[in-house]
Design a protein around this nucleic acid. Structure first.
Lengths: 208, 208
DNA sequence: GAGATATCTGTTCATTTGAACTTGAAAAAT
DNA sequence: ATTTTTCAAGTTCAAATGAACAGATATCTC
């Protein structure tokens, strides 16, 4: 698809981006390849764009967008606590971000994606631990068996959603925790699609 | 640390970056905030830099580096199977990639990072499931208690590395699996630093 | 009150940078 | 054999862009 030279140019752009955080200008690319004319670079860029390897913002400086960025990386906000109304998901409650490519997340395209940091071990038998980051999707069709973040009687919890005899309840995956049967309403805020865990380092022993 | 206005400017820079893939120019920032003078923006940038919230490449266009970018995204190769010698980690054995920001991965900077798709449930009590993607780091100092990918007697397995009485062995986190005591040598190929799980969708019921 | 900091305006400059022409030659495809 | 693509160079522009300098007001601290 690409010639070797074209691939080299593309790789240079990507590498610069990764290492310096900024896309190189055409003249920087030029001097890197020892070209005598900046026009040559313009031609490479035109080809790369035509073949779909880069996007660009015309007439803007250093505005090439390479596949490194294009690998559809969703930047998912982590909420420390989901407030009652999903409408009120403001910047204030954001604890941080996880960036993940869309392939790794099971995420659908149109649904809003967000993340929660898990507190407690009520879902330990579903192999979700304290401190894990659970990625959820705000979608409508919840199935029995899905793990969801739900608003039950004013509080948000992560539980398994189970439909039994036509009535839903929330099942904790830990025998020490009670199942929650909603008194009035059960509002599902998101369905779990992925999980990211930072593995804590093992404790250092005396001997090391 | 930052005034409200300063924070707003920083957030705008970050948001633009995220959404457009390119850092805004000073004049774009200016017009967004309805400022009459571009100099005002220069002053904000100077403050943000002095306070350490952004880095920059002087005299280059759109060359602000915000924390969002500093969140380097590593593109981690997933190996279906690790061949015997780590030197032979070729493109052929790559099953895919995960892209993750370095914060989410516990990764150190200089170590080589790679990923494995977990087969089997021998680590289920460490809450690692079949199909999970385990991210590992090729580093030297392995501690007792670390979960590692190791080459033992010609095969690669994911196990917990335990040092006992000065001798290491590999512990499966599942009573149905035996621990592995190396006959001759135990070569650790990587130490687990993170985990990414795609949560499978719940099975559809008759009722839906 | 003096000094520091934050906020904003106005003007001017020198570079940087993308872009648009042109020409030429070798390689690849048809 | 002809056309297309790739690769490269030379020149010139206009716009985009960061930067510098001067001035003004308000707030807060010492």
């Amino acid at each position: 698809m690409l010639t070797e030279r074209q691939r080299n140019v593309l790789e240079f752009i990507q590498t610069e981006q990764r290492e310096k955080g900024v896309t190189p200008s055409t003249r920087e690319i030029q001097s890197h390849f020892g070209l005598a004319s900046q026009t040559s670079v313009m031609q490479y860029i035109a080809v790369l764009e035509r073949k779909g390897f880069i996007d660009r913002h015309a007439r803007k400086a250093r505005a090439l967008i390479t596949p490194v960025q294009k690998v559809r990386i969703t930047d998912i906000p982590i909420y420390g606590q989901i407030p009652a109304g999903m409408a009120t998901l403001t910047e204030q409650t954001i604890e941080g971000h996880v960036s993940l490519d869309t392939r790794s997340v099971n995420a659908s395209k149109n649904a809003r994606t967000f993340a929660l940091r898990v507190r407690g071990d009520s879902m330990i038998e579903a192999h979700i631990l304290d401190g894990d980051i659970v990625i959820l999707e705000d979608r409508k069709d919840v199935r029995s068996g899905d793990i969801v973040a739900a608003l039950i009687d004013g509080e948000t919890t992560l539980k398994r959603y189970v439909m039994e005899h036509g009535r839903p309840y929330l099942k904790a995956e830990n025998p020490d925790y009670p199942n929650l049967v909603p008194a009035r309403e059960l509002r599902v805020q998101g369905v779990m699609v992925s999980l990211v865990r930072k593995q804590p380092a093992a404790q250092r022993r005396k001997r090391n």
